[in-house]
Amino acid sequence: MRRITYIFLFIFVFQSNAQIADFKTVKFDKADKIALKYKDENLSNLPQLSYKLTSELTTDIERFRAIFKWVCSNISNDYSMFTRNMRKRRRYRNDSVKLAAWNAEFKKTAFKKLLKKNRTVCTGYAYLVKELASLAGIECKIVNGHARTSTINIETLDINSPNHSWNAVKLNDKWYLCDPTWASGIPNPTTYRFQFYFNDGFFLSDPNIFSINHYPQNEEWFLLAEEKPTFNMFLEAPVIYGNAYNYFSNHLEPKKLDNTVKQNEKVTFRYRLLKNINKNDVHLIVEKNENEKKVKPSFISTEKTTLIFEHAFDFRGYYDVHLYIKNDLIATYSFEVKK
């Protein structure tokens, strides 16, 4: 009997992912299989593509899953396009006429590239997901705003000029968030070319973890009932990586990337867990002056779906602290340790 309970827990609890918890009894095997089956479809006929992806499925969540999975596995992120666009947008930031002209021109080439080569930047992903979902009768929106990654220099971020787009989707009368661009893949660490690598964490993500590195222009799209972060809080937030979305539903402490602490003072790290993890898998890489050390936190607890651990610095100086679970890089913080 106990074994059955564990198997049950394993299937229904440990696999649950973020907001996906609302749909824990839904299996996506069929939807994912359909997305794979139509791998060679192109974008010349979106209504037909939407029909093919959704007509064999019975629930909206599965239909939306097939669309999301298809877009994330077939559309690649064009980094050169992204760089060129950001450069121009920054240059014309204070010239609305030139900026509008550039946006119109870029939109044309972007759609052409999407249609002919299946390559795009974030807005292209968000547009496709929205369009295919709408054609299947699912209410879906493009959300524009700011995103923060480890490689984005926050000094270049301007509250009036968004750098990212993602989606909000309404399923069973409730809104959910997802980021198809980030779910599709990341740059290869050595060649920097786009590499498909599906990250399930960005499908119906928990709005709490989402708000750590997504700042929507319209704050209603935080989908947070309580206190919403300000733009400054967003800019000061720690750097979290894609893997964080696979382990956490919320990031609680430290609230900031840059921290100042006293020598030997205990620093608390706190996260809301999505699934059970083994304490032994948690470690920190503490980096100081080009030297790095793997450190096991002094105290660690994973009770009540919350991961808590502590760390203290023995010496003064500047440190970068990276959180890892197994080999997955999760988050980075920086500390100035004073006497």
Binding site: F82, N103, K107, N144, T149, N163, I186, G242
Partner: peptide, 23 residues
């Protein structure tokens, strides 16, 4: 009619962050 929006995009990265103050 054309969709009205501006194309933007920030790719995600797994490149480990390095602070400027840790030199």
């Amino acid at each position: 009619y054309e969709e009205v929006f501006e194309f933007t995009g920030a790719p995600n990265s797994n490149k480990r962050y390095k602070s400027k103050r840790n030199n």
